[in-house]
């Protein structure tokens, strides 16, 4: 098995385990980390090329929805959008520093939490939007960032070990133009 695939598969297994076993026990003031979201966004940012990020986001969104009693498909919808946006923005803005992936991760987490709150309120939860944002969405977003940012930095280090192509090189699309001979790296612009 390719090393990157192994890392992603192990990460997926760990994310499910942490969500089910650890998350309920580390709730702080009713905020709880969402390891499914954290994993999907880390996968989208660290491996933005290809369609795997979208499929991972959908799968983990569905898993999160099915593990609870919330409407099935809601988190899947938001995570697919967030993963698509995060991977494309990262591909365009990546400057080989740690700041950019972390910033993209934070923005994506907050957007997903805020829109999930909007969704929950609009589908009948007994709370105002302000309450939903203040009591759930923002605390959860902060918690997700506190848990997710170190993990993101760690996963990037795993992918950027010495002797391996840098994340920037990997994230940009490498294209061999002739038979087996790599003539150079071509940075592609994705269409939104």
């Amino acid at each position: 098995m390719e090393r990157d695939t192994f890392i992603l598969a192990a990460g997926a297994f760990l994310a499910v385990l942490l969500q089910l076993v650890l998350a309920p026990n580390i709730a702080l003031f009713s905020a709880m980390p969402n390891f499914c979201m954290i994993y999907a966004l880390i996968a989208a940012i660290t491996r933005p090329a290809g369609n795997a990020a979208l499929l991972v986001a959908f799968a983990f969104g569905m898993l999160f929805d099915l593990l609870g009693n919330a409407p099935v498909g809601a988190m899947a919808f938001l995570l697919v959008l967030a993963a698509f946006g995060a991977s494309r923005v990262f591909t365009v803005l990546n400057n080989d520093t740690l700041f950019m992936p972390l910033a993209i991760f934070i923005v994506a987490v907050f957007l997903v939490e805020v829109f999930y709150a909007v969704f929950m309120v609009s589908t009948g939860i007994a709370a105002s939007l302000l309450e939903a944002l203040v009591l759930r969405a923002l605390p959860c977003a902060f918690y997700n960032c506190a848990v997710g940012l170190p993990l993101l930095a760690f996963v990037r280090r795993l992918f950027d070990e010495p002797g391996r192509p840098s994340s920037r090189a990997h994230d940009s699309m490498h294209v061999s133009l002739t038979s087996g001979k790599n003539l150079g790296k071509v940075r592609t612009k994705h269409r939104f």
Partner: peptide, 28 residues
């Protein structure tokens, strides 16, 4: 090649979003 890849990605995105929305609607 780029155009095909981008098109495939967009189709997948649209497909997954539609499936999610259909599931939410069905759930309610």
């Amino acid at each position: 090649q780029q155009s095909i890849a981008a098109l495939g990605s967009n189709i997948l995105l649209a497909g997954l979003l539609v499936v999610s929305l259909v599931l939410v609607t069905l759930y309610f």
